[in-house]
């Protein structure tokens, strides 16, 4: 996740907090937030993940005029290259989020303008029981504020699976 400019806005925090089912007024009510120890609207602990919105190249967002792998007329908008793919194909069977770690140097506040800089980390492989060969890759993202100070350090681990993860029991959904 790389973003040259990640403006932290109160309305975005409100929507994000709602989506994770968190009605704490410190994320939505300026007046109530002022009376808390935080002293104003802050962001929930996993909010920086939404810097994806400000990463121009983020690959899990449909882009104007470009093919998208989700369904439309067909189950996927991307024609698979002959012999290509394996796994779930179409970009679908592959990437899952395996781990996420945050270190908070201070709270993220409405009004902050952050930058997100991502550094690649280790890569390793493992044989999985439920999904074939697993390829893990790590990345570290530093979120810095308008003064260049480190606010959050995020370390993510993604995993690409050889095939979709087998389910232990029939789907409940």
């Amino acid at each position: 996740m790389a973003a040259k400019r990640f403006p932290v806005e109160a309305s975005h925090i409100l929507m994000f907090a709602r989506s994770v089912g968190d009605d704490n007024p410190v994320y939505s009510d300026e007046e109530a937030a002022k009376k808390t120890e935080a002293g104003g609207i802050i962001a929930p602990p996993t909010f920086v993940q939404s810097s994806a919105q400000f990463d121009p190249d983020y690959f899990l967002r449909p882009k104007i005029g470009q093919p998208w792998f989700g369904s439309g007329k067909n189950p996927t908008g991307i024609t698979r290259a002959p012999g290509g793919g394996g796994g779930g194909g179409g970009g679908g069977g592959g990437g899952l989020h395996a781990e996420q770690h945050y270190e908070y140097h201070r709270a993220v506040r409405a009004g902050d303008v952050l930058t997100a800089t991502t550094f690649p980390g280790k890569t390793w492989e493992k044989e999985g029981k439920r999904s074939g060969k697993l390829v893990f890759s790590e990345s570290v993202t530093e979120y810095r504020d308008q003064n260049g100070e480190l606010v959050v350090t995020a370390r993510g681990v993604g995993v690409r699976t050889e095939r979709p993860v087998e389910q232990p029991a029939p789907a409940k959904a």
Partner: peptide, 18 residues
């Protein structure tokens, strides 16, 4: 809210069929 629009999370047709 997060900007992660991976169809695996929202697109039943893609997720089941592809």
């Amino acid at each position: 809210a997060s900007g992660d629009y991976n169809p695996l999370h929202t697109d039943e047709i893609f997720t089941t069929q592809v």
